[in-house]
Amino acid sequence: MTVLLGYSGGLLVPGHHVLPPLAIALVAGVLLPRALSRSHWAHRTPRLAVTVWILLGLALIASVSLTALQLLLPTAGSHHLSRFTEACVVSGGAQCGSLLPNGLAGVGTRGWAALVAAASVPAAFAVTFVRELLSARRQRVRHADLLRLVGSRRPELGATVLEHDTPAVYCLPGRGPQVVVSSGALEVLTRQQVTAVLEHERAHIAGRHHLLVAAAGAFCAIFRGLPLARLARTEVPLLLEMAADDRALRRCSRDALATALYAVASGQAPDMAFAAGGPSAVLRMRRILTPHAACSPTLRTVFVALTAAAALTPLVLACCSVPGISID
């Protein structure tokens, strides 16, 4: 099979080197995300699970980028590329020149096209990510401008209070971060519950969770339709809420946090249009009230190792060929 696929006589016949990155893309983009979203350990160790989602995202970007590269490069060129990369890494850049006898001019149009195609995948992600961050910041600045006029700063709470009957608690992360509570929330919550919700929001700010939410959003915008993107879009924010819950629990009791969650949720006028937050709040509630039993570390370790491998292989197998045993 290798020989068949590796046949490079035709211009558009892709080399066999396409297979490894394609396989990694399939594993990181479809199989592992489905398994991860169903796994039990993810919600028990949310921070670890978020790391795994990030690794999966990186693995996918790297493998799609490599697939593009290998599709466009002729087989022989892809072998050269591997030697080139290897020599550069091993020699720390000193021997790069010797592998390109004709210098950069010898790379050829097709080679350049391949490089551009490969670079466009991470570049598209970076651009979308930055755009997402900027648009979020614009919204926050607009919000904060008005908040400064109508809200009252309460140093003893470390929060800004909005005079409104509906209970609401949220934070504006980023530059000049602040936690906002409505007077309605202060009305229905006890002192311990207030501490609990404020700690939860401060955990979002301290953990810079808005960056990860934006990254998941950008990822979803680019790889729309892929299970990894679709699942990460909902799972990552939920895991971050759980991570913030865990952090709040260092300073408050399980009861305080769980009952605060219910008090705030039930105090807001229920609305049929808002189904999105529901199941996730119930998941959080159960999790807060049930102290975690030690979960099977073996399964988790296997999963993390697998993901780390998926994230690293595209780099290691920059071209899946080791000079000397490549089939030419």
């Binding site: 997402e132 961050l133 608690v169 504006l172 939860h200 969770h209 605060a260």
Partner: peptide, 10 residues
């Protein structure tokens, strides 16, 4: 990504 709520509207 702009602001994070303690609990979503339900």
């Amino acid at each position: 990504a702009a602001l994070q709520r303690f609990v979503e509207h339900m």
